[in-house]
């Protein structure tokens, strides 16, 4: 079972307590954007087999959205962090690189 630590309330929550929200750090486009930009925001997804950054909501807890780094091939969780950011924290990226030397890094 997937267990993620909520960065706000510190609870180690199992997945029945959480609600997944798919890819994190999407660049949002609104009125005035080109068709390409809007399509990439709405539909195109990284969907990687390996390190993935995604949104989760601690729905049966504090109710807040947070972000997690997770491996989609092994379900290993690298870490969680608050959602008020547009890129993963550098120390988390370093920790993932130490565990996954072949990983190309956050793009």
């Amino acid at each position: 079972m997937l267990i993620l630590e909520c960065p706000y309330c510190g609870v180690k929550a199992e997945e029945t307590e959480l609600s997944p929200g798919y890819e994190a750090h999407l660049k949002r486009y609104g009125p005035g954007a080109s068709d390409d930009e809007f399509e990439s925001y709405m539909f195109a997804r990284k969907n990687p087999k390996g390190v993935h950054f995604e949104r989760w909501r601690h729905v049966y807890g504090c109710g807040k959205w947070f972000l997690a780094a997770r491996c989609t091939a092994t379900l290993e969780v690298f870490g969680t962090y608050p959602a008020q950011t547009s890129a993963p924290p550098p120390d988390l990226i370093e920790a993932i690189k130490a565990k996954r030397p072949g990983w190309e890094g956050y793009k």
Binding site: E15, Y22, R70
Partner: peptide, 14 residues
């Protein structure tokens, strides 16, 4: 289905 990206060919028990 589960609602998170997964390539492990096993799903969540719940």
């Amino acid at each position: 289905t589960d609602s998170f990206n997964n390539y492990t060919q096993r799903g969540s028990f719940h």
